[in-house]
Write a protein that binds this DNA or RNA. Structure first.
Lengths: 334, 334
DNA sequence: TTGAAAGCGTTACCAC
DNA sequence: GTGGTAACGCTTTCAA
């Protein structure tokens, strides 16, 4: 348990200055090759461990990129995170992850914690933030990327897609296949802003296409998943058959709804059509396959990586907006 | 917008010393209550953000706990991670997350990166590691917790359950319900060690209970999920009906298998029984509900938090092993 | 209740 | 090629 071994100790052992040790360990060509080798050897013998905290402190570069996600427990966000990790680990960048639990207040608190670590960039999910939080990041010269959305008033760079446009694809598809009486199944008003945007988009798309008013089925507070979809449909009972189609906020919710319908003996899509969102694995494997929208979670991650690369290479490039788009994936539930 | 705002700047604005600001921001009772309030106000007005890097440097405590997971894209691991985050964020501890993609070599590389950040503890998933990696952590005085397993030769603390014991519960249940010809559906030999342990446990449990040799169905390289389960069963065709029961390495795989069976017109459980593992959401919502094993992903996280608390409070407590157990959850597929 | 001084381990900058 | 000096922002320690 002695004091830790520092560059100074290595320097004394080698009989050179700490400065030379520092250079040698970084493989600086400036340092004589023999010296470099000797320094490395001695450092290893002494059990020297490089202290990146000191480095981060001295250079004011943390090597961190901070990321906020609504939840890790969502296959799509997890996929984006995986792509980020893979893309950035080569660059020697570490991700600092925080999850907001779909609450902007929690996001503000989280961002405050994350900023204290001096990240070199901040990647946020979505475009809804508290005013305090906007101030917080704008006061700094910190590159910000908002993803999974196309915010009207972005903080910086954007990599996402239009949730509203995606829902229009769904509604148009349902209209084309002869459905008129739609219900939207999603979370209660509030926390999940992307969910709210999707709901509103369905409501207004239905209006503009001359359909009856869309019914809103509340599956409970966000985040909602399979079991919430199943529970709310179960609670409604066979009443649900008065709708032509259940437009669900996500594939897991859609799967839950479908499972409940099937348990009641109702046929999908003959009695009721169902659509999901996000092309989760369950949409493709469920029986019948769920009609959904592919949102390229992986590509969002890759594009964010590419934007970050540009930021780190050129110091302050113009802010960019990249729309990764979305595509209807017709399954067997419509 | 030049240099960052430091305590010194806040101090000048308030007309006091940086030392007082430091104390005030930490809510030190030593500081006059009015002064504290004023300091907080001024700090906020100036947009001051605390610098944890400097703190870590000065105090020689990073405030990090490093965590490795096989994959974030797994609801159970994500749930454990969520519990860890929630439990530790109050303590002001940040998690450094890395994912190993189910490869011990990748784990070694990852741990190397993570250790450079001076974490105050290391939380690993599973008990299989490279020798290099074992050396790496044992050289340091670093608290280590292995979770999701009960390793024979632990590196330090352990919070997990016996994968083998869990599979015995499954086999016994199948025997009780009259099944004899079992097949195990899992990943190819290699990467996912918990999967391998489960498979071996099924094979030997079947032997010891006098069942015929268990057939092994290879769903491809780890990680395997819904679509791999579906694909491998689809490829087998109705041949699969020669088995009494498909024992699957996880619930998603079980769901995939079940979906494929149903598409072929086979009945679950009448023609073939199916079991999963992990009590994923899909097990409960699928139709029929999948018989599975509950492994308390959330409790694993909470217990790890509690062990970490003990470690941080008392400096070096004896290493502990906590078995969170597992329980059979009988569904409708057996 | 407040403040001054020192220093944590590293590296930028200049001098030799 | 190598080394001396100073500094990054904070908190420990001691003094007032």
């Amino acid at each position: 348990m002695g004091a830790r071994v520092t560059m100074r100790d290595v320097a004394e052992a080698v009989g050179m200055s700490p400065m030379t040790v520092s250079r040698a360990l970084r493989d600086d060509d400036m340092v004589n090759a023999k010296t470099r080798a000797r320094v490395r050897q001695v450092a290893q013998d002494l059990g020297y461990v490089y202290d990146s905290t000191s480095q981060a402190f001295r250079t004011q570069k943390s090597g961190f990129v901070a990321v906020t996600l609504p939840s890790v427990n969502n296959a799509n966000f997890a996929e984006t995170f995986r792509a980020l990790t893979n893309g950035l680990s080569e660059a020697g960048v570490q991700l600092l992850l925080g999850s907001t639990n779909y609450r902007v207040e929690r996001e503000e608190e989280l961002v405050r914690q994350l900023l204290a670590r001096n990240p070199e960039a901040l990647v946020l999910t979505g475009g809804h933030h508290t005013d305090e939080m906007r101030k917080l990041v704008q006061d700094r010269q910190l590159p910000v990327i908002e993803m999974w959305d196309l915010p009207a008033d972005p903080l910086g760079h954007v990599v996402g897609f239009s949730n509203a446009r995606a829902m229009e694809l769904i509604v148009d598809h349902l209209v084309t296949t002869g459905r008129r009486k739609l219900a939207f199944v999603g979370a209660s008003e509030g926390a999940d802003m992307r969910g709210v945007v999707r709901r509103d988009a369905v409501v207004s798309a239905a209006r503009s296409r001359g359909l009856p008013e869309v019914a809103l089925i509340d599956a409970g507070p966000a985040p909602v998943s399979m079991r919430h979809g199943a529970a709310v449909i179960e609670a409604m009972g066979r009443d649900v058959a008065k709708f032509d189609a259940l437009v669900c906020v996500s594939d897991p919710v859609a799967f839950g709804c479908m499972s409940a319908l099937q348990r009641m003996g109702l046929q999908v899509p003959d009695d009721v059509a169902i659509t999901g969102f996000g092309q989760f694995e369950v949409a493709k494997v469920a029986n019948p396959r769920i009609t959904t929208v592919n949102v390229n979670a992986d590509e969002i991650g890759q594009q964010v990586v590419s934007v970050l690369r540009d930021i780190f290479d050129a110091d302050a490039p113009a802010t960019v907006t990249r729309d990764v788009g979305s595509a209807l994936v017709v399954g067997e539930t419509t």
